[in-house]
Design a protein around this nucleic acid. Structure first.
Lengths: 129, 129
DNA sequence: TTGCAAAACGCAACAATGTTGCAATAAATG
DNA sequence: CATTTATTGCAACATTGTTGCGTTTTGCAA
């Protein structure tokens, strides 16, 4: 783990995430890279990509875990988790709204580590139809 | 479903949720009401209690689904989902901070239905130890 | 190039969580 | 107290995620 390698499976998974406009779940990702690697490998690749700060792990409103490319985060620093996720109840897609930052004040007795704000509703493209 | 009944299983589950200071998962609830009813019944009771607006369904940061009594919501109106959930990374408990309301502005093209804000960190009691 | 250590993989088996169908049971109402 | 139907239990299945282990592949260096 100290020296990460660039494998076919890793490239395939990362490619699918990078080229998607919305967050993808493990089952969705496995479906897209099927033939390239095993189901278990997708899980392990995803864990590694999260650890390496290459992708972003998002929990949807229904509890499903999704992975997204994070445009504003590069490898040099840890991911910012203070932005907003929009979850469309119609097309079920999640997107990161990174320009929307969240500011919350709590009593000093609470130590805040991360913020997860997900809003559900109808996304712009689903509003048209 | 049109005429909900008050059964032993329902009372037992609701009682555990009402008497807990933090949100409970299905496995935790089943453990607490074990002997009263079947595992499947707990799932079905929880679904019904959510539909009847008796309890609150919360997705934790790790994707686990938890259920909580909602003090500010009564049966006459739908649950407000515009408050904050605090998830302690130490004791793993979730609590609703209902006095903290969230206000977010999005472009008009987004139709907002519900807001889910979860903050992870160290809760007051875990901060002491 | 070629050899080597370690990272990564495939496979199989397991574990946890949630769902469905259906016959049996029990709660509310008159 | 009888009837209706909401609710339950059980069994079987589905999905998602995890672990162990022997094998393969990658990156690096001789």
């Amino acid at each position: 783990m100290s020296n990460p390698r660039n494998t076919k499976a890793k490239q395939a998974v990362l490619n699918e995430i990078a080229n998607s406009s919305f967050a993808l779940s493990q089952p969705e990702l496995f479906e897209r890279v099927k033939g390239t690697c095993d189901r278990v490998t997708v899980y392990r690749v995803l864990d590694r990509l999260v650890t390496e700060n290459k992708i972003h792990k998002i929990v949807n409103i229904d509890g499903t875990i999704n992975y997204a490319h994070c445009a504003s985060c590069d490898e040099s620093h840890t991911h910012a988790h203070d932005h907003l996720h929009f979850s469309c109840v119609k097309c079920k897609k999640i997107e990161c709204l990174e320009e929307q930052l969240i500011h919350v004040k709590l009593p000093d007795t609470y130590q805040i580590k991360e913020l997860f704000l997900t809003i559900s509703g109808i996304c712009p493209s689903c509003s048209l139809s």
